[in-house]
Nucleic acid binder design. Structure first.
Length: 313
DNA sequence: AAATATTCCAACCGCATTCTA
DNA sequence: CTAGAATGCGGTTGGAATATT
């Protein structure tokens, strides 16, 4: 038993509003107001529409002083700050932005602002502060951490390293119609003051998968966001999930066919546990965009755990 | 130029809350 | 006080517009 419909759907017009319908609704409300009864309004206004539909059309489009078009930086900041604090309470957020409707803000967030945020990493905890040592679940930490409103600016211009200082190797190959080219590598020695995302983006050929050794946390975000189609591999002794006990961790985001390149890089740089890792890579049937994590525990046993590398979207 | 994919947003849907008889 | 109606809200979707292949 579902809820009774608010109107007879068969006798009511649906879909986009015509200019004539808009005019009728506008004229009626300007002359008589809503009368506090949306259900009765369409009939009085001579519209074959559901009352709910009329209400929505009026509130989101026809009522005076509705602002359409580009959102300003200030509006972005307000939306970001409020979203970080109260989540998707669109009507409350809209209340802080004169002329904007909840629907408009919701759409803007879902289609544009969220992506913008991802790139600027607003949703990460303050990158200048290393996470506490006693966390064992980085994802939990991330989502429960204090709101990013503690930022001096809600939209930091770039990511930065926290207080780590890892030599970081980036390796990439270009992707052409002939297939993948030979691997090329670059060694970064990233200092805490370096702008990681910026250097990654400068380095990374736009359409290349990326392999990275070293780095942690936001380096991983940088790798994922600056790599082609999410194809990146990251080998780190300080990963997203095991900062607390300082287990070695290898985070991999690999696409199928990458086994060879991984092996080559591992050989070339004489990583510890190379054999175990290579074994895991070859025995796991890695598919495109799959993400695996490998942990090396105190007994130097490599353990694999399939998990999504954290992405905030 | 055509086909296909992606983006965007107005509108819909159904649940939750508030109102009112 | 209570049940049913009305309204508010946020997630989802259809399809037009635009971009890409």
């Amino acid at each position: 038993m579902g809820r009774a419909p608010c109107c007879d759907k068969a006798s009511v017009k649906r879909g986009p509003w015509s200019p004539e319908e808009d005019q009728k609704l506008k004229d009626y409300i300007e002359k008589h107001g809503t009368g506090g009864n949306w259900i009765a309004l369409p009939q009085k206004a001579g519209l074959r529409r559901c009352g709910k539909s009329c209400r929505l059309r009026w509130l989101n489009y026809l009522r005076p002083n509705i602002k359409h078009g580009e959102f300003s930086d200030d509006e972005d900041r307000i939306i970001c700050t409020l979203f970080a604090n109260i989540g998707s309470r669109w009507s409350i957020i809209a209340g802080q932005l004169p002329g904007r409707t909840d629907n408009d803000i919701k759409n803007y967030w879902n289609t544009k602002l969220k992506k913008k945020l991802l790139m600027s990493s607003l949703m990460l905890p303050n990158p200048f502060v290393r996470p506490p040592n006693n966390i064992n679940n980085y994802q939990q930490y991330l989502f429960s951490s204090p709101s990013p409103s503690s930022y001096s600016s809600p939209l930091p211009p770039t990511l930065r390293l926290c207080d780590n200082n890892y030599p970081t190797l980036g390796a990439s190959r270009s992707f052409t119609s002939e297939g993948f080219s030979n691997i090329s590598t670059t060694l970064f020695n990233i200092q805490p003051q370096d702008q990681v995302l910026g250097s990654m983006q400068n380095y990374q050929e736009k359409e290349s998968p990326l392999i990275m050794f070293g780095g942690a946390g936001d380096d991983q975000q940088a790798a994922s966001s600056s790599s082609y189609d999410e194809q990146f591999m990251m080998f780190s002794n300080c990963g997203m999930n095991s900062i607390a006990d300082e287990q070695k961790q290898v985070n991999l985001g690999v696409s199928s066919g990458d086994h060879e390149i991984v092996s080559n890089v591992l050989d070339q740089y004489n990583m510890s546990c190379v054999e175990e890792i290579k074994q895991l890579i070859s025995t796991n049937n890695l598919s495109c965009n799959s993400n695996l994590s490998f942990f090396v525990d105190e007994n130097k046993t490599v353990r694999s755990e399939e998990e999504k590398v954290l992405m905030y979207y």
